[in-house]
Design a protein around this nucleic acid. Structure first.
Lengths: 221, 221
DNA sequence: ACCTGAACACCGTTCAAGT
DNA sequence: ACCTGAACACCGTTCAAGT
C-alpha cells in the first residue's frame, strides 16, 4: 500500500536496481561467479559495499534478478520463418546467442529457475508456435523444456565459466592410448576440429525433427 | 619416476584421496557448492582443516577429482538392447541416473570438463555404438556431445542445487494473467503435472530418432 | 529514502612447524 | 610423509548510525 511516487531525485548517487544488475552482470561475465563478491560490486558502483543491500535483500536475490535480466534480453519479437520447425530453431538460436554472451552467468542461469511472467512469456512464444503446428499444450511445454535444457547444456559446455575455481589444463592427447578410444582418435585424424556452432545446430535440428515425427507436427496450409 | 611403494602405514589417520573425494561428494550432495568449504571438509574428515592440502593443491583440483569420480560411476559395461537407438538411450539413462544422485555437484559437472582417459572412454562407448550403426567418427562424436549436453541440461533443471544461494520460492500461479500465457495455462488445466522422467525420455528419443534419419543410421542385419 | 562503517562469523590458501 | 595451527587477505550479512 505504499504507493507514493518518487517525484524528485537527490543529487548523483542513486544506484537503482537496473544499474546494479547491469554492473553485477558485467562483473560476472568478466570473471565468473567465484570471483564475484558483494563488496567488489559496491566498489564497482563507487558506493559503500553495503549499499546494494538497500535494493536486494541478499546475493541470491541479486542473482535471481541477473538471471531474469538475461532471459528478458532474449528477443522473440523479430520475424521468424513461416515453417514451424525453422521458426522454433530461430527462437532457440536467439536464446543461445544471448546466453553465450554471458559465460560467467551461465551457471546461474542453469541452476536458478526464474518463475516470473517475463520468463513464462518467453516460453509461451515457442510453445504457442508448436501448438499452432498441432501439438497439444502439455506436449508443447514438454518440448520447449527439452529444447531449452539442450540449449543451456550446450552453451554451458561451450563457453561456461567453471564453478569452484579455474579448471585444469587439458592433458596432451599424445599421451592417450588410441586403442581404448579408437572412434575419438579416428575423428581427430584428418585435422578435424570441434565446431560448437555446427554441433549445436545438428542436435537442435535432430530434436526438432524428432518431435515433428513423434507428434505429427505440420503447418496448416 | 617416484615409484617407491607404500609398504607400511602409520596408525589411524591416513586420509587418502579416495576417502577425501567421497567425503567431499557427500557434503556437496547434502548442502550444495555454496555451503561447501575446505574447512568443513577437514572437520568432516576429523582432521585439521588444512590436511586436505597435502592431497590436493587447492579446492579446484579437489572438485575436478569429484567430477571425475561421478563420471567413473557411470557404468556402461552392463547389457544393452541390440537395437542401436535403444542401446544409446540405455547409456544416456545410465548417465542420468548417476547424475541425478548428485544434485549438489551438478553445477560442477556441467561446468568443469574433465579431459581424462576414463571420461573419454565413457564417451567412446557411445560413439563406437553410433559408428557401428553407420555414423562417421566425427558425426558420432558430435552426436554424443549433443546427447550429453542434453542430459546434463535436463538433470540440472530437474534436481540441480542452485549456485549462489537459495532460490526464491515460486510465485502463486493464480496471480498470473492467463491471457499472456494461454498455452501454459491450457497445459496446467486438467490437473496436468510436469513429469521429469517422461519429459527427459521424450527429448532423448526425439534427438536419437532425429540423428537416425539425418545420418541414416541402422543396425547391420 | 538512501547510504555508511563497524562488527561478526566465516572463507581459501600460505607457511613454518611438528611427528 | 603426513598432519597441525597461526596468520593473511578476504567473504556475506547485520545493525546502528548518518543525511
Amino acid at each position: 500500500m505504499e504507493d507514493n511516487q518518487a517525484a524528485e531525485r537527490p543529487a548523483r548517487p542513486m544506484l537503482g536496481r537496473g544499474h546494479i544488475v547491469a554492473t553485477a552482470l558485467a562483473m560476472l561475465d568478466a570473471r565468473g561467479v567465484d570471483a564475484f563478491s558483494m563488496r567488489k560490486l559496491g566498489g564497482a558502483l563507487g558506493a559503500d559495499p553495503m549499499a546494494v543491500y538497500h535494493y536486494f535483500p541478499n546475493k541470491a536475490a541479486l542473482f535471481d534478478a541477473v538471471v531474469e535480466a538475461i532471459y528478458i534480453a532474449i528477443d522473440t519479437t523479430g520475424p521468424v520463418p513461416d515453417a514451424w520447425d525453422e521458426a522454433v530453431a530461430t527462437y532457440l538460436y536467439a536464446a543461445r546467442t544471448v546466453m553465450r554472451a554471458h559465460p560467467g552467468a551461465l551457471a546461474l542461469i542453469a541452476t536458478r529457475p526464474v518463475n516470473t511472467v517475463p520468463v513464462y512469456a518467453l516460453l509461451e512464444v515457442i510453445a504457442a508456435r508448436l501448438a499452432r503446428a498441432g501439438a497439444r499444450p502439455t506436449d508443447a511445454i514438454a518440448m520447449v523444456h527439452c529444447l531449452a535444457t539442450y540449449a543451456v547444456g550446450q552453451v554451458l559446455a561451450d563457453v561456461g565459466a567453471p564453478v569452484g575455481g579455474p579448471e585444469a589444463p587439458p592433458p596432451d592427447p599424445a599421451t592417450f592410448d588410441p586403442s581404448v578410444i579408437p572412434t575419438l582418435v579416428a575423428a581427430m585424424e584428418g585435422g578435424w576440429a570441434f565446431d560448437p556452432d555446427a554441433v549445436f545446430d545438428t542436435g537442435l535440428r535432430a530434436m526438432i525433427a524428432g518431435f515433428g515425427s513423434r507428434y505429427g507436427l505440420a503447418d496448416q496450409t
